[in-house]
Computed example of a mutant assay.
Amino acid sequence: MRYTLRQLEVFLATAHFENVTKAAKSLSMSQSAASGALKDLEQQFDVQLFDRIGKRLQANELGKLLRPRAESLLEQARELEQELISHRDIGHLNLGATLTIGNYLAVGLMAEFMREHPGAQISLEVANTESIARQVANFDLDIGLVEGELHHPDLEVTHWRDDELVVFCAPTHGLAAKGTLSDQDLLTAEWILREQGSGTRQGFDRAMHGLLSNQIIKLELQHTEAIIRAVEAGLGISCLSRITLKDSFARGSLVPLSVPHRDLLRAFYFVLHKNKYRSAGIESWLELCRRYTQ
């Protein structure tokens, strides 16, 4: 074999950081050793994998083509190493989840996963749908759990479970006694919403088609809890996932508003890179999520 796994590690780290010094640091190597490994890899096959743009090394077309295959090969090598060391140890799993899923579902699933696999290590990144998709596409995350629809050539997006958005307000709000809202009510209300780029906002915008340009958006906030507190304070009405509002509805601090003529159903999705190797940890996580869909 004319290349080494170490050379592939240097290639992938350089593609990620676009800088050999940073790549070397991430691999605990000297800058000269990393540069030498990358140079040897290119010379052995008489190819160029990067274009120099100022101080950056940006993967060229060949580098971009080889990157996902190198990622998959290294992932398989890491899993083989783990199997040799610990006989099918799950290893480390890098998860990403959107705010609704991360704050209300993922932690419970992580706890169950670690009970079933005591040696497993899990990290969780919580961000909006666009950010999670970008990190999965860049191989920074193994799996994404998102609430927004995605169309990306490098990502595999599959249905996980159904969800429902709910319009709601404080019990003292003028619309609380009305219960069922008309389109005119939706247009005159002041809204407190999630930011653009979030799956919740995407679902809301789709449900409110035909009204969006005339609706009154008073606040856009990045955090679900902040929206709940603002609505409880009477600043406006909002629309969030039902799973985030269960406790507030039970306490009576918020009340649901019916909008039967608007489709507020949506889905949660798994997001993986199409070329990501499905390790034992990834397969076990997906299987657990499918079991706990309620």
Rank of each mutant, 00 (worst) to 15 (best):
G210L: 09
E220R: 10
G203D: 01
F204D: 00
G203R: 02
M208S: 02
N214G: 03
R242T: 06
G197T: 02
S213P: 14
A233R: 13
G210S: 08
R201D: 11
Q196T: 05
A230G: 07
Q222F: 06
H209I: 12
G210E: 08
G236A: 04
L235G: 05
H209C: 08
L240Q: 13
A226T: 07
Q215P: 04
G203P: 08
L219G: 01
A230V: 02
V231T: 11
C239V: 04
A233S: 14
S241W: 01
G197F: 03
E225P: 07
E225A: 11
S198E: 05
R229D: 09
D247G: 09
E195S: 15
I217G: 00
L193Y: 07
G236S: 03
E232A: 07
G236K: 00
R242K: 13
F204K: 08
N214S: 09
S238G: 13
S213V: 11
L245H: 09
R201L: 12
L211P: 06
D205L: 13
L193W: 06
I217V: 15
L212T: 15
G210M: 07
L212N: 15
A230D: 00
T244H: 05
K246D: 12
Q202N: 09
L212Y: 11
R194T: 13
R229F: 01
I217C: 07
L240E: 02
S238H: 05
R229Y: 01
D247R: 14
L235W: 01
G203K: 01
G197R: 00
L193D: 03
A230F: 03
G234N: 01
I237H: 04
D247I: 05
D205Q: 10
I217Q: 02
I227P: 15
E225M: 03
A207H: 03
T244K: 06
I217T: 11
Q196M: 13
L211V: 07
I243C: 12
G197Q: 01
A233I: 10
E225W: 02
R229L: 12
D205P: 15
S238N: 04
G234Y: 00
L193F: 10
L219H: 14
L193A: 11
E225G: 03
Q222L: 08
L245W: 05
A207K: 02
A233P: 11
Q196V: 13
A233D: 12
L193C: 12
T244D: 14
E225C: 00
D205A: 08
H223C: 01
F204C: 10
R201W: 10
T244S: 15
A233K: 06
I216V: 05
Q215S: 10
R201H: 10
S241G: 15
A230T: 05
T244E: 10
A226F: 05
E195C: 04
N214F: 03
T224P: 02
